[in-house]
Amino acid sequence: MFEARITQGSVLKKLVEALKELVTEGNFDVSNTGLSLQAMDSSHVCLVSLTLREDGFDHFRCDRNMAMGIHFGNLSKILKCAGNEDTITLKAEDNADQLTLMFEAPSQDRISDFDLKLMSIESEHLGIPDQDYSAEVKLPSSEYQRIVRDLTSIGDTVLISATKEGIKFSTSGDVGTANITLRHNTTPEKPEEQTFIDLKEPVALTFALRYLNNFSKATPLAPQVKLSLTKDLPIVVEYQVGELGSVRFYLAPKIDD
């Protein structure tokens, strides 16, 4: 059987809200190391990779590897019924066709359970190579959200260029053009408000803003976001979810013909 308990149930609520518009369905792969998900959007332009470690849960048991096919819109409907302070327990028998979600209020005076019907999903698993990136930028997740939201109102695509001057986001559209540059800045006292730019070599890539904007739905999960860039490769937009794990979004670039 599979059983996973998390005291901070709001994390699961936020995770599903971050994913549900990008990927309608996918498999939760559970094993004794934790829970993971890999899913592409419907146009196969981006990929979401979620990893939640076994030791990040308050209790985790998985006797047998399973792929649980989840419809994220439906999971979201159920998780909306959980209180923000609730402890959430996920449970499934081996080869079950449903996932049970149990919500416990902190005062222990309200306990509810919901069964989510599971789906059979054939998913293509992609191998993501470990690699070094030309530029890695860590910035406040709220800053990333603001940049992609602002630029989405001006244009459809963004040129992201990392140089020793900083990281520049440029777009253009019917109304005109926009450029936003962030510099390496470790002045703020709070680490989560700092911007770190680790540049091995200058790099410039073009991406569809619609997806970058969609990734920012994960902002409530983490105070910082990491962008990793290498020429002619997908950008990685990564949110660390505390001690529990991470959610990574990979977006294929637009490349000149």
């Binding site: 196969h44 993501i128 190579p129 695509t157 997908p234 294929a252 637009k254 490349i255 000149d256 013909d257």
Partner: peptide, 14 residues
């Protein structure tokens, strides 16, 4: 003119 690539063009089957 630039073209939007598919993500599978970058990552192999794993």
């Amino acid at each position: 003119k630039s073209t939007q690539r598919k993500i599978s063009a970058f990552f192999g089957n794993g």
